[in-house]
Design a binder for these strands. Structure first.
Length: 543
RNA sequence: GGCCCUGUCGUCUAGAGGCCUAGGACACGGCCCUUUCAAGGCCGCGACACGGGUUCGAAUCCCGUCAGGGUCACCA
C-alpha cells in the first residue's frame, strides 16, 4: 500500500491571503483530499519585520472562508522553533558544512554591483578572513550570518507539473544564507527542516521557487532528509500589465483615476488633497511613481473624491473577493482552473467534483492571465443555481464584512425577498448597490441629477407630470401587492395613453433616487404604501 | 544581461501523430425578450507564434528564431 500523501501550505503572514497563495493552498488541499492524505498549515514567520499577529488572523480568516481546512490541530509557527533550527545549524557548522560569513549588506551590494559591471554573475563562495578582519568585524558590532557550504556539483530534480528534469550546473552553485544576522533561519532552511519533520511528501508551490529547489535538495542531502516530490505552479498574471498579480494593481487603478480626474476637472493635487484630507506631499509622491502605495486608510478617502467604489478595484486578496460579494465555492472553482483543468469541456463544478477529479498530471505550466470577467460569469451562473438558503447565507456573510450597508438592518425574510427580486445578479455587491434604497429612511434618498434630468425634467417635465398623476392612482390601491399595484399602474397607463416605461421610470427615480432598481412593482410592494407615497411626495416637492 | 520555464481564438483552455473543416467557456458583434439595470434565448466573429526538419501524415515529435514570464536578497 502506498504511503499516504502529505501536503502543506506554508505562507508567510503579511495580511490577508493573496489570490496566488490561495490557489497554491487550494491545489495542496485538493491533492490531499483527492488521495485521502493530509493537508498541513505552517506559518513561515521568520521575517520579523513583516510578520504580525494580525496578519496571521487575517490569513486564517481567508483560508477558513474558502473552506480549506487544515489537518494539523496545532498550527506550526517557525518563530517558535528556533531551538530546533539552531541545533541543526550549529551541528552543520561543527561539521564544516556551514560557516559564518561577515560581510555587511553594503559590502555584498558592492560586490554584486561590481560583478554586474563586468557582466559576470555574482556567486557567493566561502571567503577567508584574517584574524585582524574578524577582530574588526566584532569590534564594529557586526553579527555574522551562517551560510551553507553548498557542495559544488551538478544538481538535478524532477518537477512533476513541468514533467521535466531541472538541471543546475556546478558553475551556478553558491553558498546561501541559512541563518540571518538576527538569529532567525532563512526560508530555505526552515522550509527544508519543517517539511521533513512534518513528513511532507509533495511540495506544490509557486514557480518563483523553482530554482530555490536546488538549495533545498542540497540541504536535504546534508541533513539526511528524504526528498519530497516537487510540483511548481504557474504564476497568475495581471491581464492588463502581464505581470504577477500584485497588491499594487489596486493602487494603479486609483492613481489612473486620479490622473484622469484631475485632467478632466482641471483640478490640482492641492485640490485633491483638500478634498480627501490626505497630505499633498504624500499624494504628489504617490502620483509620481508606479510603485508607491497609499495606506489602507488613505485609499478610501481618495477614492471617494474621484468617484471610485471598492468594487471598481481589482480584487487581489481573498478578502477583496469576499467584500465584493463572491461565494467561496465560486472562487475555488475559478482558482482551480488557473493552472489545472478537468479535461474536456467541464469547467463549472462543485468543490466535491474538484476533489474527485483533481490530478497532478492535469496541471499545466502556462502562466494564466487572471480573467475577472470570467470569474464574474461563473458567479452569475452559480448564483442562478443556488438555493435561497445558500444565497441568504452568502449575503449575510457579505454583510458581515460590509457593515456600512443599509441591508444589515434587514430581516432574513426581507433579504430573501430582495434576493428574489434581484434574480440574475452577478455578485452580492450588485444586490447591495441596487437595493440598499429599500432599507433607507425615506428622507435620506438622494436624487441623482442625471436621472432627474432624463426621467423627470426632460420634454417639458413630462415625467414629473406622470409621476404626479400616478400618485393618486397608487394612493387608491387598497391591497398593496405587486400584482395589484401593477394592475393599477397599467390601467392608469391605458387611460393616459402612456407606455409603461413613461410611468415606471419616474416612480423608480422617486423611490430610489436613481434610474436603476429591481423590478418596480415588487420594489413598491416591499417598500409599502406609506413609504412609496411619502417618497413620491418628497420627490415632487424637491425637483 | 546570465540561467530557467512557457508559447492553440482578445482571455482561460480541450487536444498524448490520422478522430481537427481544431471543441468548450469568458469577452465581443447582431437579433429576440423587456417597466430600468441585469438575467435569459438564438445566431455570428475568432487561434495552432515563425522558420526548418522527422513522418505516408504534425497543433501534437526534434532543432532554431522570436515573444512572454520567472529568478538572480540577511523576503518568502
Amino acid at each position: 500500500m502506498p504511503s499516504p500523501i502529505v501536503t502543506r501550505f506554508a505562507p508567510s503572514p503579511t495580511g490577508y491571503l493573496h489570490v496566488g497563495g490561495a490557489r497554491t493552498a487550494l491545489f495542496n488541499w485538493l491533492l490531499a483530499r483527492h488521495t485521502g492524505g493530509t493537508f498541513l498549515l505552517r506559518i513561515e514567520d521568520t521575517d520579523l519585520a513583516r510578520s504580525t499577529e494580525d496578519a496571521v488572523t487575517q490569513l486564517l480568516e481567508d483560508l477558513k472562508w474558502l473552506g480549506l481546512q487544515w489537518d494539523n490541530p496545532e498550527l506550526v509557527y517557525q518563530s517558535k522553533r528556533l531551538d530546533i533550527y539552531n541545533k541543526l545549524i550549529d551541528s552543520l557548522v561543527a561539521d564544516g558544512k556551514a560557516y559564518e560569513a561577515w560581510e555587511s549588506g553594503e559590502e555584498l551590494d558592492a560586490l554584486r554591483a561590481a560583478a554586474a559591471k563586468s557582466k559576470r554573475p555574482f556567486l557567493y563562495r566561502r571567503r577567508n578572513y584574517s584574524e585582524d578582519d574578524l577582530k574588526r568585524f566584532k569590534d564594529e558590532g557586526r553579527r555574522p550570518v551562517v551560510r551553507f557550504a553548498m557542495p559544488v556539483k551538478e544538481y538535478r530534480f524532477h518537477d512533476l507539473t513541468l514533467d521535466k528534469e531541472i538541471v543546475q550546473t556546478p558553475y551556478e552553485v553558491q553558498d546561501f544564507v541559512i541563518r540571518k544576522g538576527d538569529g532567525m533561519p532563512t526560508y530555505h532552511f526552515g522550509v527544508v527542516v519543517d517539511d521533513a519533520e512534518m513528513g511532507v511528501t509533495h511540495v506544490l508551490r509557486g514557480l518563483e521557487h523553482l530554482l530555490n529547489t536546488v538549495n533545498h535538495i542540497a540541504l536535504q542531502e546534508a541533513l539526511g532528509y528524504p526528498r519530497p516530490i516537487y510540483a511548481h505552479l504557474s504564476v497568475m498574471l495581471n491581464p492588463e500589465t502581464g505581470e504577477k498579480l500584485s497588491k499594487r494593481d489596486r493602487d494603479r487603478r486609483i492613481r489612473k483615476r486620479c490622473q484622469d480626474f484631475m485632467r478632466s476637472t482641471k483640478k490640482t493635487v492641492a485640490d485633491l488633497s483638500a478634498a480627501s484630507g490626505v497630505a499633498e506631499a504624500r499624494l504628489t509622491d504617490w502620483l509620481a511613481t508606479d510603485t508607491k502605495q497609499l495606506d489602507l486608510t488613505e485609499q478610501p478617502l481618495v477614492m471617494k473624491v474621484v468617484g471610485l467604489k471598492e468594487s471598481d478595484l481589482p480584487e487581489i486578496m481573498i478578502h477583496d473577493f469576499r467584500k465584493n460579494g463572491y461565494l467561496p465555492e465560486v472562487l475555488n472553482n475559478f482558482l482551480a482552473l488557473q493552472g489545472w483543468s478537468a479535461g474536456g469541456d467541464l469547467e463549472q463544478m462543485s468543490v466535491e467534483k474538484m476533489v474527485e477529479l483533481f490530478s497532478l498530471d492535469r496541471i499545466n505550466a502556462n502562466n494564466p492571465k487572471f480573467n475577472r470577467e470570467k470569474l464574474k460569469a461563473f458567479s452569475t451562473d452559480a448564483i442562478a443555481k443556488a438555493t435561497p438558503e445558500r444565497l441568504l447565507a452568502g449575503l449575510r456573510d457579505y454583510l458581515s464584512v460590509n457593515p456600512q450597508s443599509s441591508l444589515v438592518a434587514a430581516t432574513d425574510a426581507q433579504l430573501l425577498k430582495i434576493l428574489a427580486m434581484n434574480a440574475g445578479f452577478h455578485i452580492f455587491s450588485d444586490v447591495d448597490e441596487k437595493s440598499a434604497f429599500l432599507l433607507k429612511p425615506d428622507e435620506s434618498i438622494a436624487y441623482e441629477p442625471d436621472a432627474v434630468e432624463k426621467v423627470l425634467k426632460k420634454n417639458d417635465r413630462q415625467g414629473f407630470t406622470a409621476l404626479k398623476d400616478v400618485r393618486d392612482a397608487l394612493a387608491a390601491v387598497t391591497s398593496w401587492t405587486h400584482t395589484e399595484i401593477e394592475a393599477a399602474v397599467k390601467t392608469f397607463c391605458d387611460a393616459k395613453q402612456l407606455g409603461l416605461g413613461k410611468v415606471a421610470q419616474p416612480i423608480r427615480v422617486a423611490i430610489s433616487g436613481t434610474a436603476v432598481s429591481p423590478p418596480i412593482f415588487e420594489s413598491l410592494e416591499f417598500l409599502g404604501k406609506d413609504s412609496t407615497l411619502a417618497r413620491i411626495d418628497r420627490c415632487l416637492k424637491s425637483v
